[in-house]
């Protein structure tokens, strides 16, 4: 099952890291599509983001390399005393030097780190903004469940439509009982809808 060349060997052993990112990304994607709760959607978005950040950071890894900060022997400000294995300390004293390609291999790729640093910061900013919008939606509608939200928005639309239809009828001076009927219908509609759902708390 795990011999060379099979798909399972490719995915689960040689490229396990990519497999994990794909799974994380799918969890996030599924949460964003299928969950009805807006906060759960945001959690899905964060998981999605984490998968991409992990993917980028893993691209910057090089086997046997160190973090992208110069070691004492390449430090542009030279003059370092570093204790070595033998009891004497080795001393580096030099100015900045251009590293050749064999030394470049000793440092991890700094570019993905920089890109992901900015991505994390933007992620925090967007998450904060999204949470603020969720709070505002909760204040206005009393719910952050998507289906309940849609029902409430529809009922509001019906109410505003019946109001706008009444205006031309008023100009023609229709019979009074007809107007009353219309009004009582729209009122009863909104009443039944608002009675079935918990009252929005943040409403003015």
């Amino acid at each position: 099952m795990f011999e060379d060349g099979t798909i399972i060997n490719e995915l689960l052993i040689e490229r396990l890291n990519y497999f994990i990112y794909v799974v994380l990304l799918l969890i996030g994607l599924h949460a964003m599509i299928a969950k009805k709760n807006l906060i759960k959607k945001l959690i899905g978005m964060s998981i999605f983001q984490t998968a991409i950040i992990l993917f980028y950071v893993s691209i910057g890894v090089k086997e046997g390399s160190t973090i992208p900060v110069y070691l004492p022997e390449h430090d542009p400000h030279g003059s370092h005393s570093v204790p070595s294995d033998t009891n004497e300390t080795s001393h580096f004293d030099h100015g900045p030097v251009i590293l050749d390609s064999s030394l470049v291999k000793g440092y991890a790729n700094p570019l993905p780190h920089v890109l992901m640093l900015t991505a994390i910061v933007v992620g925090v900013a967007t998450l904060g903004l999204a949470l603020a919008l969720c709070q505002r939606i909760y204040q206005g509608y009393g719910t952050i469940e998507e289906d309940e939200l849609l029902a409430k928005m529809e009922s509001r639309e019906i109410r505003s439509k019946t109001l706008s239809v009444q205006i031309p009828k008023d100009q023609k001076l229709p019979k009074k009982d007809e107007l009353k009927k219309e009004k009582s219908r729209s009122v009863s509609k909104s009443k039944t809808l608002s009675a079935s759902k918990p009252k929005p708390k943040g409403k003015k």
Binding site: P68, V69, P76, H77, I98, S101, Y107, P110, V114
Partner: peptide, 21 residues
């Protein structure tokens, strides 16, 4: 990225390449 690793020290004298980039 090779340019960043090789030349950060000469260009800016900053040891941390991530900050320099």
């Amino acid at each position: 990225s090779s340019h960043f690793i090789a030349n950060t020290g000469v260009d800016t004298e900053v040891p941390n390449m991530v900050t320099a980039v």
